[in-house]
Amino acid sequence: MNTWMTTPELVERVENSELVYMLDRMKAIQERENNPMGIALQRFGSALALASRQMPWPQFNTVKGFGSAGAAQLDEVLKWYKEQGGSPQFEIVPSRTDGETLLALAKQGFYQSGFHANMAGSIAEQADVKLEQRQTGIVVRRLSENEIDLYAELHAFGSGLPIAGKNHIADNNRMLFSREGWQFYAAELDHVAVGVGVMHIHEHTASLTFAATLPEYRQRGVQAALIASRLRAAAQAGCSLIVGQAAYCSSSHRNMERAGMSLCYTRGTWSRLPFS
């Protein structure tokens, strides 16, 4: 990985990569017959509002790209979410907001509820992406569309979701296998699939969008192998930048650092006060 410097242009590119893949993911779910997840999407200037009536989790009901013009748009954004039957969270990038916007959020009953690490690194020439692994014998391969059930099962068990939700995971990801830019991977240990990773490529930027390992196989280098394989694939695809998101100071954060990625910014999450 090459050395790089944080600039406003880099921050914008990193933020946009997350916005692009999440928009494409939500569009794919929305395009399912009769839009069963109740997906709605709306632009407010540079901000993108995502909503789902059937998936109440914050990541599917969030405002991305909410910048320094946010104060003037906030009433309109909240009115739109009320029409969708829900309430959003706002993702705030430090260098792309201002005190007026943050004060407007506070006045509407929002508070900063969390932090998220947005990582980035430039990809060296095609390369020879090297990443130390704590255990040999891990094989990473691309998944095909007919392995969606395997992916859904590993996604559920690896992220702590009930297996009863496996079919929903499969339905919401099936169309991404054939959608441009998406790549799904499985990590195998002794011929047993123990982890999964997903990558989205857009305009020479590769985003590490999801990863999970079965609990009993953690701390054995599975995620390191998945990151290394996706980095190699990104280099082969001609990407110049690799980005990823993780809970701050988490094992995923550290795995990305071991791969040569660095912290680009710490994103703030703003949620509505429970009693407001």
Rank of each mutant, 00 (worst) to 15 (best):
I39L: 05
I39K: 03
I39S: 01
I39N: 08
A40T: 04
A40M: 02
R43N: 04
F44T: 01
F44L: 03
G45D: 04
G45Y: 08
S46P: 05
S46V: 04
A49V: 01
L50C: 06
L50V: 08
L50F: 14
A51N: 10
A51C: 15
R53N: 05
P56Q: 06
P56V: 07
W57R: 10
W57Y: 12
W57T: 12
Q59A: 13
F60E: 06
N61H: 07
N61V: 07
T62F: 03
V63L: 11
K64Y: 14
K64V: 12
F66H: 06
G67Q: 09
G67N: 09
S68F: 05
S68R: 15
A69R: 08
A71V: 04
L74C: 13
D75V: 10
V77N: 06
K79L: 11
Y81L: 05
Y81T: 02
K82E: 15
E83L: 14
Q84S: 07
Q84L: 08
G85S: 11
G85D: 11
G85L: 09
G85Y: 08
G86W: 05
S87W: 10
S87P: 03
P88R: 07
P88V: 07
Q89W: 02
T97Q: 04
G99T: 12
E100W: 13
L103A: 11
L105I: 12
A106R: 15
K107G: 08
Q108K: 13
Y111W: 10
Q112R: 15
S113N: 13
G114I: 04
F115R: 12
F115W: 11
F115A: 13
H116E: 12
H116L: 05
A117P: 03
N118T: 02
M119Y: 09
G121Y: 00
G121P: 01
S122T: 15
I123T: 02
I123Q: 09
I123N: 06
A124G: 13
E125C: 05
Q126V: 13
Q126F: 13
Q126C: 14
Q126H: 14
D128H: 07
K130R: 05
K130I: 06
K130H: 06
K130P: 02
L131F: 00
L131Y: 00
E132A: 11
Q133H: 12
Q133T: 04
R134I: 15
G137V: 06
V139W: 01
V139E: 12
V139D: 10
V140S: 12
R141M: 00
L143Q: 03
S144C: 01
N146R: 07
E147L: 00
A152P: 08
A152T: 04
L154I: 15
A156W: 02
A156C: 15
A156R: 02
F157P: 00
S159R: 10
S159A: 05
S159P: 00
G160A: 13
G160Q: 10
G160C: 14
L161F: 15
P162E: 12
I163V: 12
I163N: 09
I163E: 13
A164L: 02
A164H: 01
K166V: 10
H168S: 03
I169E: 01
A170Q: 07
D171T: 09
N172C: 05
L176C: 01
S178Q: 09
S178D: 04
R179L: 04
R179E: 01
R179M: 06
R179A: 07
E180Q: 01
E180C: 01
